[in-house]
Design a protein around this nucleic acid. Structure first.
Lengths: 335, 335
DNA sequence: ATGAAAGCGCTAACAT
DNA sequence: ATGTTAGCGCTTTCAT
């Protein structure tokens, strides 16, 4: 594998001239440029980004840390990130934390060692340690999806509270009076915001006393279990609000298992859509977040931060949420 | 951000000693080691992998090139790759080619510039150019999912032909005599292998004359369109074999649109499952590939190749396929 | 058990 | 418009 010096020698110029040709920087005469380019082609020269990065202190690499790329919500986000990165000749390293702080720490370390230019982080836990670590090492961070307390950062997330509010209003409008919410883990902002929106809607409708909040985790098992629990403890429930797509699917399975029809007996709504393309006919009524766009915007923000074209102070982008009504909701059977 | 020399100075040792402590290589006395480690901690030293890579010619980075990470099949594969990488302190760069040779080329270039230690490639096209490019630059490649002609490489893929054979046999066993296959693009091995398996099953059952092969692309639109075409040209069809999950979903939508019931009027089977967790009740009968395991095995193979512990010559791993029977198939209405 | 010297491949800074 | 020099942060090689 030839290097820049080989090219320089072969073309009869100084190394820096080859560098200038490759990077289109500084002055190079047309004849010289052509000579160099010819040699580059002839020898199949591939510039070494590693060496360049060592000198220029730029790796042209971003990192994306999500909890699990297997969740279609994060997959879309990842695609948004990668598309923006690619368009700017950046490369993306991805990592899964599985909501574990230990794994997040390990990755943070690996990524810092690699001197990535910036990190897109979906925090796995409530604390700001990882963010502080990156900041201490002068690595730009944009937080995605979840708010974090105890630290100021650039951040992009959806308006969960408003989405939950509107989703709950929708149920109330259909006559539902006993609505349970099965949220994700306590301490995660998305989880808590959704509960807040739910509570606000109930409160405005004068339904404070029927509030029914179940905290668990953002997975199917939790949805299944808590839906069972909710129905057992409260047989008069007519609607369930799933904290995310997995939770809602788990809840529906539990309801079916109890011999209950959706939406005949119980209406179900959910945060996060399921990928449309996979369904013969989409069924769930959802508050859809714009995951792809979130990834895009966060990556764009991060790249601007890296290039220094952003003023001091932090940007907070809150994306709107779209309510999509489908077959999983109906009028309350309680009347 | 302190560097290794800062640590050495502060600890009163030579840089190389710090290097030895960090990498656990060579002899370092216990007291010296402890002194160095204390300084490392005190100054929050983070080793620079870039610099290390420049000298040692190892970046500890893999690349994963898929057509679209948004396809759950590739998402699982990506998770498998990442889990193995993480366990070995490797990092993964991912890229989407969207089946475009141009994008594949661009990425190949970016990745070579970054001197990744190895590449996991789902080829976007039938030719071997990208593989040859990597080989010319001494970058290890393991091909995934699809065979490529004109070149010998390490490769991991599923036994599509056998899966298609068994899936078709299943339909034949249910009395179906007119079965169409809607395949992916011609020229892609997975597509052609599935057609071969389908043909073999028909042939063994003496149904050669009812063979009905439609080539298109591995997406929903193609499935929709070709299912329409197939039913129009051949109203006596009683079963459709979708070349992958997207195609099958498109086909089912087309059938519904034509007022046909699945499986009442037409049975549908598919290659590739849809993620179970997303469904209230999975419906499609499928030939499931072990995508996660494929990612794992390929990554393991690649790491072994990188570390040089594999003998010369190429490894070819062919994974078995699992047939999962669900509601989308029934006895042929034609009897 | 520890260190000195050299160099990986490139570019920033300063000539000419 | 082109070149010289130095150095990014680390590890390889060869001492001692």
């Amino acid at each position: 594998m030839p290097n820049l010096i080989d090219i320089a020698r072969q073309a009869g110029v100084a190394p820096i001239t080859v560098s200038r040709v490759i990077n289109n920087s500084g002055y190079v005469s047309q004849p010289t440029r052509e000579r160099v380019e010819a040699v580059v082609k002839e020898l199949g020269y591939v510039p070494n980004t590693i060496a360049r990065g060592l000198r220029s202190k730029r790796t042209h690499t971003l990192a994306l840390i999500v909890t699990d790329i297997t969740n279609p919500y994060f997959t879309s986000m990842a695609r948004g990130v990668e598309d923006v990165a690619e368009a700017n000749d950046y490369t993306v390293i991805y990592s899964n934390t599985d909501e574990s702080e230990t794994k997040e720490k390990k990755y943070a370390n690996m990524l810092a060692q690699r001197r990535v230019d910036g990190v897109l982080l979906v925090p796995s836990c409530g604390n700001a340690n990882t963010i502080k670590f990156f900041e201490a090492n002068h690595i730009n961070v944009v937080v995605l999806d979840r708010r974090i307390s105890g630290v100021e950062t650039d951040i992009v997330y959806s308006d969960s509270k408003n989405g939950a509010y509107r989703l709950t209003k929708l149920l109330i409008g259909l006559g539902h009076k006993r609505i349970a919410i099965i949220a994700g883990s306590q301490g995660v902002s998305t989880s808590e915001d959704r509960v807040l929106g739910y509570q606000q809607a109930l409160s405005e409708a004068g339904l404070d006393d029927t509030e029914l909040v179940y905290y668990g985790a953002f997975n199917e098992q939790s949805g299944y279990q808590l839906a069972n629990q909710a129905m057992t403890q409260n047989p008069k429930l007519t609607a369930i609000f799933g904290g995310n797509n997995f939770v809602a699917v788990g809840a529906i399975k539990a309801l079916h298992n109890l011999g209950l029809d959706v939406p005949g007996d119980v209406s179900v709504v959910s945060f996060d859509d399921l990928p449309e393309f996979m369904f013969m006919k989409p069924f769930l009524t959802v508050a859809r977040q714009h995951a792809y766009e979130m990834g895009q915007m966060a990556a764009e923000l991060l790249l601007k931060r890296i290039s220094g074209e952003l003023p001091q102070g932090h940007r907070e982008l809150i994306l709107p949420i779209e309510i999509i009504v489908r077959e999983s909701v109906g009028p309350s059977k309680a009347g």
